[in-house]
Amino acid sequence: MKNNKTDPVSVISAGLFVTGVDLILFAASFGLNLYAAGFSHKGIVKILRNSFELAAFFREKLLNSGTAYARKKDYLENRRRDLVLTRAGRERLKRLLPRYRKNRPWDGRLHLITYDIKETKKEKRQQLARWLAAHRAVKLQKSVWISVADLSRELRQENLIYQDEGIVLISSLKSSEGIGGKTVQELVEQWYHLFELNRRYDNLLLLFKEKKFLTKEEKFIIKMRYLKILKDDPQLPRQLLPKNWQGDVVYNYINQLSIEN
């Protein structure tokens, strides 16, 4: 298994992509042929070096083999002198990339998930923990998780409320109650690291304000950075976000980039 901390593609994309094929397809969605741009011109390599400090990883072999594989799988096709995404390539990207959610309903409660699953059923405990993490629940301590969403229906649908293997309990508390003298907003900011996320959004926003015109290469880098932040963003209900939250502001800029592209 690859170590994502040192894997070239993971480093290049700041953890957004795992395979070179996906990185190449994402670039193609901006009209960029990374193989040609990387070795016929200096622009894309310079941008990658400045953005992620990884020029040493950006190897011809990686791009050549990834591009060849994408063409073989019909993710890319030649159109005149350009390599463009096919429908299959667009569908692959669509499944892979995180999406911004405009509608974020909330019932005004925090939902506590606790479980007591037998030691002999370690695999069941791990399966439940992975599922909770994937659904943006936060682990408070061993076998105790909290979520801003009511996951009870999904847990039942996925058959994760076990009977023979142990017990899973779900309880809730009103947003006005708080825990340990802290308000729900304070707790959520701490659990989901919203201050750090907002700082990352703010830094990205500065790139838009510094330059009036962005090249295709710069749009590619900015969009990749944005999607990495969005992947880490739990996209909480707006009632729980800080007043100076920059996520929606950055989304509007990114959306404009997509329209222009």
Score class of each variant (00 low, 15 high):
residue 47 I to E: 07
residue 245 W to S: 07
residue 49 R to V: 06
residue 214 L to K: 12
residue 132 L to T: 10
residue 123 E to R: 12
residue 139 K to F: 03
residue 28 A to I: 05
residue 123 E to M: 09
residue 45 V to L: 06
residue 147 S to L: 06
residue 208 F to I: 08
residue 203 N to M: 11
residue 33 N to G: 02
residue 225 R to Q: 14
residue 105 P to V: 09
residue 233 D to K: 01
residue 245 W to K: 03
residue 170 I to K: 07
residue 9 V to C: 12
residue 2 K to H: 12
residue 246 Q to C: 11
residue 69 Y to S: 14
residue 173 L to P: 10
residue 185 Q to N: 15
residue 229 I to G: 00
residue 101 R to P: 00
residue 178 G to A: 04
residue 21 V to I: 09
residue 172 S to D: 15
residue 141 Q to T: 10
residue 131 W to S: 05
residue 203 N to V: 13
residue 208 F to Q: 06
residue 18 V to A: 08
residue 39 F to A: 06
residue 235 Q to T: 10
residue 135 H to E: 06
residue 85 L to N: 04
residue 250 V to Y: 05
residue 65 S to F: 10
residue 99 R to Q: 14
residue 136 R to V: 13
residue 187 L to T: 04
residue 229 I to Q: 04
residue 25 L to Q: 06
residue 237 P to M: 01
residue 221 I to E: 13
residue 253 Y to E: 14
residue 230 L to N: 02
residue 161 I to Q: 11
residue 5 K to Y: 14
residue 91 E to F: 01
residue 50 N to A: 08
residue 10 S to R: 12
residue 8 P to V: 05
residue 196 E to F: 09
residue 103 N to H: 13
residue 150 D to T: 01
residue 259 I to C: 12
residue 189 E to Y: 12
residue 120 T to Y: 12
residue 239 Q to N: 12
residue 42 K to E: 13
residue 240 L to G: 00
residue 219 K to E: 14
residue 111 H to K: 04
residue 5 K to L: 13
residue 66 G to R: 01
residue 163 Q to S: 08
residue 89 G to D: 01
residue 80 R to G: 06
residue 151 L to Q: 06
residue 188 V to S: 02
residue 27 A to R: 00
residue 229 I to A: 01
residue 178 G to R: 05
residue 125 R to L: 05
residue 33 N to T: 04
residue 209 K to E: 13
residue 222 I to T: 07
residue 181 G to C: 05
residue 36 A to D: 13
residue 74 D to S: 15
residue 100 Y to N: 01
residue 122 K to R: 15
residue 31 G to F: 02
residue 100 Y to M: 03
residue 42 K to F: 08
residue 239 Q to A: 13
residue 166 G to R: 01
residue 176 S to T: 15
residue 73 K to E: 15
residue 239 Q to L: 10
residue 41 H to R: 09
residue 69 Y to R: 15
residue 85 L to D: 09
residue 19 T to M: 09
residue 251 Y to M: 04
residue 83 L to H: 05
residue 261 N to T: 12
